[in-house]
Each structure stands twice: as C-alpha cells, then as structure tokens.
Design a protein around this nucleic acid. Structure first.
Lengths: 157, 157
DNA sequence: CTGCTGAGTATAGAAAAGTAAACTCAGGTG
DNA sequence: CACCTGAGTTTACTTTTCTATACTCAGCAG
C-alpha cells in the first residue's frame, strides 16, 4: 500500500470536473456563451457541431446548473429558449482562462492570439495566476498537495 | 457576416489546448506526475487505465514537450524510462488548478476535498485567480474579449 | 540458457462518442 | 390552410475508446 499509488482517486476534484466539462464541445460551448452566443442556432453556426450532440451537451449543462434557459422572442416569431450562464458556470472561468493562456503561449499563430482578454476599464491583459489565500503569487513548484478530509485509500485487491 | 458568429474559430487557443490535453486520461496522467508518479507501472496502477492508451498518451505528451523521458535504475535491474514534467508542462498548472478548484467547490464529498493544495512554507490554501497585468484581481464579468492579431473571419460559404 | 520483471506492442470484441442527414413539431405569416 | 423557421429528435453509419488477454524484448539472477 503506497500512499500515492494506492489512494482512491474516484473522488478527485479534477476527475469530477472533467466528468462534467471533459466531453468534446462542452468547453467550446461555454467559450461561445462567454463571447455572447445564447441561441441553439448560434452555437450550431459558430461551432459547426452536430445538432444531436449540441442538444445533448446543452441539456447536460442546464441539468448541471452551469447554464440556465430563458426565453427570447423575435418580433413575428414565437418565444424560443436561449441559454445563459449561471454563477456556477462563471466559476469555470479560471480553468478556461488557464487553457486559453497555455494555448496563447504554445500554440498561437505566428502573429499572436486570435482573441485578447483585457481588464475592462483598466485595459491591461488578463490571465490566470496561482495565488495563496494570503495573496502571495505562487510558483507551481511551491504548491504542496496534502491529503484532505475526504482522502482515502483504495480498497485492497 | 456577424462578428461573433462568423469568425474563424480554428485558431482558438482554448480549442488548440484541448487538442493536446482534451483526451480522456491525459490530464489525469499529468495530475499523477504532479503527485509524484513517474513510471509506466505507477500510472497504470493508480489510474487503472488500459496499457495501450497509457502508452499512446505518454508518447503524445512527450512529443508535445509536456513530459520528457529520463532513465532510472533500480539496483539489480536494467535502466528503464521514467517520465518527468517539463516547463511547458508546468505551465498547464493554472488550468488544472482551475478544474480542481471548481470540483472542490461543486463536486466534493460532504467531508470536503480529497486533496488540499497549500503554499509550501506559508501553508495557506492555494487557488487559481484571474488577475490583470497591473495586479488587480479581476471578476469574470470584467473580462473583455477583443479580437487579437490573428483574428479572422471564416471564409464565406 | 532459463526464468523473471518492467515496459511496452498487438489484437480482438464491445461500448461510447462523433457525424450526417432526414424527420418532427409549434406557432406565426401570406 | 399551406408554408416557413428555430429548435430540436431519430436513425444510420463511422470512428474512437475501453477492456482484456496474449505476446515481445532487454537485461539481470540463478
């Protein structure tokens, strides 16, 4: 029984988050909600994603409380549903910013990124940083991972 | 031609990062590298991931420069390869911390998280935050996304 | 030179995910 | 009342992943 190798990984928060947002299209849908899309046809048009998957992913995001449905009404048409982000969805922003930032650094076109994130008002470039509760900037090497309250070992076998 | 809906999304940095780390197991392998695993058998044991997929993901991570191979030698055995993280891999930490943090908040067991991240030395809890270059903490609502140097519209059609 | 071990590769079958295209359904328009 | 539109559902097909087992290969031990 090795402390690291025989621990139970089924309650890992990273794995659990990936169960929700780890399927193809899910994060890209959130990206578009971010950038202002809200209608089924918006997502379909900008993502080029198959309708059945789009419907399934939207349904799942709503069930999970990451998106919520509202209705909109175009003059001369009936009311239709639209999708808006919830606070629970907003809390995914740091993770998505982290992905964005890595791509900007290592996989951008020669000219640079396709999209820039700025602090509204101040205008300065925005990114995801690791900080401790006391406000210190933390280097990845200075993060210590220790067993938490739900830590447990994998049942032997 | 709508500015948002008809832009070319193929050079999106989020999508490009997901091309590298978006497959199942990839981020979980990185998590284990983090927590101290380095050998093929370590990953197999802790993740329970099929060998062929594990071999494929490790090969890809090495090709991408996120992991590198070194050798280790157990007394009485021959040299064998092990996998260590590179600076390019370390730069994925903010994204993974973002996922961890969301899972801790919304999907943890009732007792709390399985693992806690602390600032070595100071001991305070660590998380991913959004900041601008001038050091201001930024709320998700105050992020403004603007077209960058590689922004382009999708070819009409 | 035979066996053992860690690190893989090879292969085959089952399940899940992805893709494409046709179809449905409700309500508003002409 | 036939037609149009946005928002899906259904179905058929392809690809990817998953699981499980068997096999290889290098070098150290006996």
């Amino acid at each position: 029984m090795d402390y690291r190798l025989d621990r139970d990984t089924s309650n890992c928060s990273i794995a659990r988050t990936l169960e929700v947002v780890g399927e193809k299209w899910t994060i890209l849908i959130l990206r578009e909600v971010w950038y202002g899309s809200s209608r089924f046809s918006d997502f379909e048009r900008v993502l080029g994603c198959p309708r059945n998957l789009l419907a399934a992913r939207l349904r799942m995001l709503v069930e999970e409380g990451i998106l919520a449905t509202e209705t909109y009404k175009e003059p001369g048409s009936r009311s239709r549903p639209k999708y808006v982000i919830t606070p629970k969805g907003v809390d995914l922003v740091p993770a998505v910013m982290g992905l964005l930032q890595w791509g900007d650094r290592y996989r951008a076109d020669p000219e640079g990124p396709a999209v820039l994130a700025r602090h509204r008002g101040c205008g300065a470039h925005v990114d995801a940083q690791i900080r401790c509760e006391r406000g210190h900037a933390v280097q990845a090497e200075d993060i210590e991972s220790v067993p938490g309250p739900a830590f447990r070992m994998r049942p032997a076998g």
